[in-house]
Amino acid sequence: MISCRASGKLFIAGEYAVVEPAHLAVLTAVDRYATATVTAADPGEDVILYSDLDGGITLSCERHGDELSPTSDAVVPAAFSYVFAAVSVVHRLLLERAIPLSAFRLSVTADLGDADGRKFGLGSSAAVTVATVAALGQYFALGLDPMDRYRLAMLATIAVNPRASGGDVAVSTWGGWLAYRSPDRAQVAASLARDGVEATLRSPWPGLSVRPLPTPTELTVQVGWTGNPASTPALVAGLDGDRTTFLAHSNDCVERLVAAIEADNSQAMRVEIDSARALLVDLDAMSGLGIMTPRLHALCDAGAAVGAAAKPSGAGGGDCGIALIERTRPAAIAELTGRWISAGIRPLPLRTHPVEGGHR
């Protein structure tokens, strides 16, 4: 039996810009997880997938030549799309490496949402994908390093959502705080279709950069959940028009934020978080996407009232917001928490999940 887990994520800054290749974002991994467990299947079985998502679902799969597909022409449930895509990509790699595919059972569990199944917006799709790739990589002794795992998980991700930036995939792979630039997913997908999985793993990915950052020592990230799950793909799909100015200003802001994090300059970090929020507010006004909901406005206002820097985390439209505030101000943190609760915002007790493995 092999079990691997992958962390959830929070966007600190750069969401919406990072959707474009080579544009910059900062993310951090958090201590909520998806876990994938692989065991040998029973005689007569082929590939059995189980997930506790959506109340628990099971999918039987079988091989047809080079393809893996659900048995009896079953449809892959939406909640299983990323897991199935990850299994399919690893299956192709096994075939290309001439490694026999022994039958197995894969079980995926996650604690990235509420007890009633609503997601917190912590990157559950990325986490289950990364955990699945890692567990299968160990089970079949593929010798995958972190970049291999990221790339395989990213190939699975863009098979489901071609516009996904992959920032959540990266931070679920490496942990810690990351500065991340997204690859050109269209070129990556074309390479996969033309050359296969192995060659795409080894080829350049234009635009991609993954760089570790130190965890700030003076500031803590407080997280509030609005209670309203949001669909990142739907919000990103609504982007249109010329965003050249937004992209340039976002990159400048996040570059300054990265420099502030590396210098552990808490005041400069708060300034750039406020700037990142202002950029999202302007983008929302221009696009009409609904990034800033009333509760996200309330979350940010509460942060400002206690001297914290606050903004939505991720695509907005619900989900989570963050506030960066000094660790040495427990009274202000308690006041922030009280203001959030009064506004119908649920504080989430999250901590940074540390770096795992090497970066390149």
Rank of each mutant, 00 (worst) to 15 (best):
V355N: 06
G176W: 08
E20R: 14
L152V: 07
D66H: 10
D42W: 13
E255F: 03
E335L: 11
R329M: 08
P77M: 03
S88T: 13
I345L: 07
F84C: 04
G117C: 07
T328K: 04
V271Y: 11
P216D: 14
L257V: 09
F104R: 10
G117L: 09
Q187F: 07
W225L: 11
D145P: 02
G207K: 07
L201D: 13
G44I: 05
Q187I: 03
V281L: 06
G167I: 06
I48N: 05
R211K: 10
Y50S: 13
I273N: 08
S275M: 12
A260H: 06
S102D: 11
S231G: 03
L350E: 01
R346G: 01
V160K: 03
L122N: 06
V83E: 08
V160N: 04
L324G: 05
S72N: 13
V169S: 13
D242T: 01
R339N: 12
G113I: 00
N251E: 14
T328S: 14
E96S: 08
T58I: 07
P349T: 15
Y33A: 03
D301P: 04
A25F: 09
N265Y: 01
R105T: 07
G227C: 06
R194M: 03
R149M: 14
C300G: 05
Q267D: 15
V47E: 06
P354M: 08
H91D: 14
L239M: 12
E67G: 02
E335M: 12
S342P: 00
G113W: 07
M269P: 01
G44R: 05
S51F: 01
L106V: 12
D116F: 00
E15H: 07
L155Y: 05
K9W: 12
V89I: 15
I48V: 15
G317W: 00
D252K: 07
R327M: 02
H297L: 10
R277F: 13
S209D: 12
A189K: 11
E255K: 14
N161Y: 13
R63E: 09
P347K: 10
D148Q: 11
L94V: 13
I261R: 08
S266M: 02
C4E: 13
V19D: 00
I99C: 08
P330Q: 06
D73I: 00
A29Y: 00
G314V: 04
P216M: 10
V18L: 04
G321M: 03
F84P: 01
R295S: 07
V30E: 06
R211N: 06
P43M: 03
V90Y: 13
P330D: 10
R360W: 11
G143A: 09
L296P: 09
L219M: 06
E218V: 11
P77N: 08
H64A: 08
Q138C: 15
F80V: 03
G357T: 13
I12L: 12
P229E: 01
S165E: 03
T226H: 06
A302Q: 05
N228H: 10
F104G: 09
G44W: 05
A309M: 03
F120D: 00
A248Y: 00
D195A: 15
L239H: 01
G14T: 11
L155K: 04
A230W: 00
